[in-house]
């Protein structure tokens, strides 16, 4: 554990908490992509199957449980409790176009061809692109509430911090995982446009509004 990894995990946790707070306080999931949230639930479940096979640390186990539980709580709020506020007309991204290619890629490019490892690899590829339905929704509506912007910023920062963690681990421990690094870089690149808007608009107190 190093400072970048810890900061990344905390940023990830903050993102999830911000999202739950936004939905709970406003009693609405307007502006949030249920499709992205479904993909994140798939990511956590397929990645954290090792909860039952491998013990890393108490921290690791607890965080995995928090990520799985909170993603299902988010889905419950969106698709059951505040279903009426769900923006499904704008949330029209076809997630099978992400799920299938990620799965095929995981079958082809993985560290070892075992069920758990292929699912882990699938989750890494899928996480890289899971935010696309959310970014698509923001681009369709042309705007995002400030708390949604903070959520996206924290969620994007998490993998960017992991990139620093991987650079650190390469030099400090000689550890690297090319699959995670490659996917993490793609994931971070997808947020760049949003980061730019966040820094130039939201941090200056303006609403995140895309140019018409």
């Amino acid at each position: 554990m190093n400072i970048f990894r810890l900061a990344g995990d905390l940023s990830h946790l903050l993102a999830i908490i911000l999202l739950l707070i936004k939905i709970w306080k406003t009693r609405s999931c307007a502006g949030i992509s249920g499709k992205s949230q479904i993909l994140f639930a798939v990511v956590y479940v397929s990645r954290y199957l090792d909860l039952v096979t491998t013990f890393i640390s108490l921290y690791n186990t607890l965080m995995k449980l928090v990520f799985i539980t909170s993603s299902f709580a988010t889905l419950y709020l969106m698709y059951v409790k505040f279903k009426a506020t769900y923006d499904h007309n704008h949330d029209s991204f076809r997630i099978e176009f992400l799920l299938l290619p990620c799965f095929v890629l995981a079958l082809l490019i993985n560290a070892s061809f075992t069920p758990l490892e292929v699912l882990w690899t699938f989750s890494i590829y899928l996480e890289a692109v899971a935010i696309l339905p959310q970014l698509f929704l923001v681009s369709k509506t042309g705007e995002a509430e400030s708390i949604t912007s903070h959520y996206l910023f924290a969620l994007g920062s998490y993998r960017a911090l992991y990139l620093l963690n991987w650079i650190y681990r390469y030099y400090a421990e000689g550890h690297y995982d090319l699959i995670a690094i490659f996917a993490g870089a793609i994931q971070t690149i997808l947020y760049c446009d949003f980061f730019y808007l966040y820094i130039t608009k939201v941090l200056k107190g303006k609403k995140l509004q895309l140019p018409a």
Binding site: R5, D9, H12, R47, D50, T53, T54, I56, N60, M63, K64, F67, A111, S112, L116, E117, W120, Y162, N165, G174, H175, Y176, D177, L178, I179, A180
Partner: peptide, 10 residues
Amino acid sequence: GNMQTPHDEL
């Protein structure tokens, strides 16, 4: 390089 399982990150 070590492509290691178990994966120790989140």
